[in-house]
Design a protein around this nucleic acid. Structure first.
Lengths: 143, 143
DNA sequence: AACAAATAGTTACCTTAGGTAACTAATATT
DNA sequence: AATATTAGTTACCTAAGGTAACTATTTGTT
């Protein structure tokens, strides 16, 4: 399947910029959206949870959480373990989540219009498999 | 097909970092590789060709071409139209291309091992369709 | 209980990959 | 000939991420 990565990566830039454009209406970017998305779908979380899930370093998440706090979309409460901070959506955060979720789903729908259900499903299933394989190979760094 | 973008973007970071790791052995990064790849597959090209193909602004391509020239992988000759510069692979560039191409194909193979031929093909075909749809929607900027 | 090791989060600073505005030189258009 | 467009460049900016080194708390170990 030579050329798969090429095709994959040719989609990345148009997609991320379309999403950023869409999210810009809510004063967000995809990297901020990811945090909201995680907290919405996994419940109140720590920084380490989010960092681990996306494989993004803690300082980056710290910054993004801080920015979302300033926008009043997240609130942070101390955990029982006093080192931890528990990150939650505010009600404003919930609203924005819903609005963005709808817009994104709508875009997903539009962009898939002319693609058969079977192909959609295949692609949908393939992506996480590739990811898993890639991560398993990846002895590169963590040895 | 809600969640497709999410799955897509969860693959991006591991993939690009794996590729950068691989290309680092040849003192390249994916953004430099893209230029080599284009010139190899489309023949001697101008900066505008490359910029247009990847939808990346000219200054970025200028820089990447300059870096590849320093590495002696590309050479640049003036075009008939004297505004243009024609960008070609050097023989060293051809060699590096071949070596990287092999490594990348090998990785593509590994990462697809446990995926049926049908699913592979479906995913392979779907990606450019989505890209096309996305770009057609995208009145966002160029109006 | 006391102390060493690990963990959560932060701060300061760096890197990569890209973009914008404004320019020069050359070619096309009127 | 004068004007507009195009190819490429330069200087400067931005977004998104990383690393190293730090503090404050747990957790484990003796």
């Amino acid at each position: 399947m030579q050329g798969f990565f090429q095709r994959f990566l040719m989609l990345y830039r148009p997609l991320i910029s379309k999403l950023n454009e869409l999210l810009d209406d809510y004063d967000l970017s995809y990297s901020l959206w990811q945090v909201i998305f995680y907290v919405k779908n996994n419940g109140p979380s720590t920084l380490v949870d989010i960092s681990g899930h996306y494989n993004i370093e803690k300082p980056t998440i710290t910054r993004n959480v801080q920015r979302l706090q300033e926008k009043l979309l997240l609130e942070v409460v101390p955990g029982k373990d006093k080192r931890e901070k528990i990150i939650k959506l505010t009600s404003r955060g919930e609203e924005i989540y819903k609005a963005c979720r709808e817009k994104i789903t709508e875009l997903e729908y539009k962009v898939m219009m002319d693609i058969t259900k079977e192909e959609q499903t295949a692609a949908f299933d393939v992506l996480p498999k590739i990811r898993k394989n890639l991560i398993n190979i990846e002895g590169g760094k963590h040895e």
